[in-house]
């Protein structure tokens, strides 16, 4: 299939470079914008080269936030987002691993029925069930708390479904060999199934982390205390809050900082998938 056609190659590269450029450009703009002094944007000319104010802008967002608009320094918000995203990710992974394990390896009444019930919840993302969920969380007194931020987002049909599919490809003899070797169900899960799923877990970890990190509507609804603001809603407050024009240079600095943790998570987890991919079992 691969032909050594110079023009073809050149064309393919051009298309790819163009695609990358389209994706990279806004990111580049955000980074550049975060380095300019206050008034630059208001003039309506988009600078394409870095400005002189990088250090100062980042220092402001990290230490002061935008206090007059009621936005705290971003350190706290980054931490809140991180805690929320981690809680959602770890919660989703543990629940979906366990439920997929139950569905694939145990014979209990209405097994298939429960599988479909889990599957149906795919059609009910937070946005759809937001009002009743808010009511429940409010009644349980979980407004303005990490529990309220993360627990309602933990159930995950997608991950359960993916793990189920994966577990079904694990040869049944492995489970039988483990039974003969004296491993009970949980030991089998921990010693054999989990290590075999590591690539899947790493991939889902990244997806779930970004999902949790990017939550916007839900935190916006249930947090009124700046102590629990997450970074994504913080950005929104920075844009709309206060009477003055949005301070774009600060917003952009915050955006750049907000994008860092997901990138770090990807870089870190990437080693796990590469390991998993190159060590795929026959």
């Amino acid at each position: 299939m691969v032909e050594n056609n110079r023009w073809g190659n050149l064309f393919a590269h051009l298309v790819l470079i163009l695609g990358v450029a389209i994706v990279i450009f806004p990111v580049y703009v955000a980074i550049i914008a975060s380095t300019h002094p206050p008034g630059t944007f208001i003039r309506g000319v988009m600078p394409l080269l870095p400005g002189p104010n990088a250090l100062e802008n980042y220092k402001t967002v990290i230490t002061q936030g935008r206090s007059q608009a009621g936005t705290p320094p971003i350190g706290g918000m980054l931490w809140n987002s991180f805690v929320m995203a981690m809680a959602i990710t770890i919660g989703k992974l543990s629940i979906s691993l366990l439920s997929a394990f139950a569905i694939v390896y145990f014979r209990f009444p209405f097994r298939i029925f429960f599988f479909w019930v889990i599957f149906l919840t795919l059609m009910l993302p937070v946005e759809v069930r937001i009002v009743p969920t808010f009511q429940v969380v409010a009644d349980l007194g979980m407004l303005n708390s990490f529990a309220g931020l993360s627990i309602p987002l933990i159930a995950s049909a997608t991950a359960t479904f993916l793990f189920r599919q994966f577990f079904m490809t694990v040869p049944e003899e492995l489970m039988e060999a483990a039974r003969v070797d004296g491993a009970g169900p949980m030991k089998f899960f921990k010693d054999i199934l989990m290590p075999l799923s590591i690539t899947n877990i790493a991939a889902l970890f990244v997806i779930m982390f970004i999902y949790g990190w990017n939550q916007y509507l839900w935190p916006l609804l249930i947090t009124t205390d700046p102590e629990y603001y997450t970074i994504v809603m913080g950005i929104q407050r920075m844009v709309t809050g206060g009477d003055s024009e949005p301070l774009w240079h600060l917003v952009m600095a915050t955006v750049v900082l907000a994008a860092l943790p997901p990138i770090l998570v990807i870089l870190f987890m990437q080693r796990l998938f590469v390991k998993g991919l190159t060590e795929t079992e026959k």
Partner: peptide, 20 residues
Amino acid sequence: LEPADRDIAMVFQNYALYPH
């Protein structure tokens, strides 16, 4: 009795070695 309590060992056709 569970397989583990029967004091037997089994060799499977596809070996069923723990791959990891």
